[in-house]
Design a protein around this nucleic acid. Sequence first.
DNA 1: CGTGCAATG
DNA 2: CATTGCACG
Lengths: 312, 312
Amino acid sequence: TPTATTKTATPSALKKQKSAPKVPIRANSHTNTTMPGTLVLPKTPDGCVKITSWNVSGLNSSLKKGFKTYITAEDADVICIQEHKVQQPLLNLVDPKVYPFNWWGFEEKKGYAGVAMFCKTKPIAVTAGLPTHPDPACTKGRIVTLEYPTCFILGCYVPNAGQGLVRLKERMVWDKAMKAWLLDLKSKGKQIIWTGDLNVCHLPIDLRNPTTNTASAGFTPEERAGFSEILEEVELVDTFREIQGTGVEAEGQYSYFSYRFQCRVKGIGWRLDYFVTDQQMYKERLVESVIREECYGASDHVPVVLVIKGEL
Amino acid sequence: TPTATTKTATPSALKKQKSAPKVPIRANSHTNTTMPGTLVLPKTPDGCVKITSWNVSGLNSSLKKGFKTYITAEDADVICIQEHKVQQPLLNLVDPKVYPFNWWGFEEKKGYAGVAMFCKTKPIAVTAGLPTHPDPACTKGRIVTLEYPTCFILGCYVPNAGQGLVRLKERMVWDKAMKAWLLDLKSKGKQIIWTGDLNVCHLPIDLRNPTTNTASAGFTPEERAGFSEILEEVELVDTFREIQGTGVEAEGQYSYFSYRFQCRVKGIGWRLDYFVTDQQMYKERLVESVIREECYGASDHVPVVLVIKGEL
DNA sequence: CGTGCAATG
DNA sequence: CATTGCACG
């Protein structure tokens, strides 16, 4: 049968315009997904340690879009990478003379998750995966714990609850195990830096559209409560929020902008990437905890950075 | 464990250079995969009918790379498309006023095979699939037969034998069914035009590297013999080869260049796309049978074109 | 929208 | 070296 009919789709440009962002977008709102060629970032203050955490959303892709530009410009002492999605270590990713110590965690399933840590100074010990998890083997691509003389650094990629919250149950299992692991570490008497893509927005201020996302992965009451519970019971601090507060002037600062729906230009973001520390670390050593909004381009996440006084 | 070692792969540019092509590349050997914006092709002579056949290797992709540029410039009376890889008819693909009659064949498996025919004049009858095949249902995405007053036109995408010849057996089943169908049609007393990606190089001259490809899909003894048998028993003619002959001056004319290994610039091609006709059609009506080498860019195949005298 | 994979060519 | 669909985010 001939199909000589004609049908035209409505151009997306003609669809109804969304209202302007409540809060201006602070960073340069380029939509391209390539980092600027040149990038200058603040040098680590003397006597301080800088840690960066970045969900790269596929390391091979990120490398083509400016991964090294950021890494070089930041010159952090510890680099925590999430969602590298590779099956084996990528060589020459960072200068081995600058970062002689690196650890990789891989997901069994190809092309998913995966974490890595690069360090200028050698840790005392390294723990792969989440030992307190009922199935520790399946957590190797999601967390690496470094022990240093003064603190533990946990580079973490928390499991996403999934579309339709199909994996919310597994997520709550993770949260419970995570709390247990943090309590374990706390009991050793060292300070704690828990960083990475924690895949939760704790408070309404942590995402642009809280009211419409109470059933979305990352902002369910369950996930928020899970995070609250950890902060309370392990007595930890969300450093960025503690510094910024929850006032209007603190709005609009996010670490993730979905590639979909032009979220970046519209300023529709989520703060999913954290530096959570114990209270002593927060009070006595914290210098800054920031979101590198200007470093959008090589991932749908931007890096987050912590600077603390003293040595690791 | 730290992985501070360094390993560098041999750049492909340093690997040994292959010898120059035996035969100069006739067409413009651009490696990009976009059609030139402007394209002028010979007008169909008065009193003639023009048919084009093109394996587009994914219609959606081809559309972005100049599909319409070719279709418009060629202005054929019948267009045969193979490997469109879509699940439903694409509207506004061709001007419905110019081609009011079109038929689509779809593969059950998503994203594979698929044929389509677009015609300026209405056929008497249309047959979807290969009725003589033991499993006719699975052939709907591979052949459409149009009946016109003077001839049958078969737009065909012959199954590939696969890497390691894993599907050579199915291919031979196809060949047998194809022969039976052609004999069926022949018995009706009309002329025959069998076109499409027949996925075989009949003779050594039909590919650049015959000696190294005797175990490659498309040039096995079995496939070549299958094709020979059809030509002989149905008494059909490979029009392009019949006109060009098998001399040195006929070398280097191919309709397919693999995207791999820069085959296009090296002139390493295969002639897989044919116009096969009965002997009367060849002797009394054939005007030309050509490969549109200059139309590389929107697929790894180029179109092939037949011009015949008289009406369909 | 974009990632990386798998099957196919 | 491409295409497509898929799972995932």
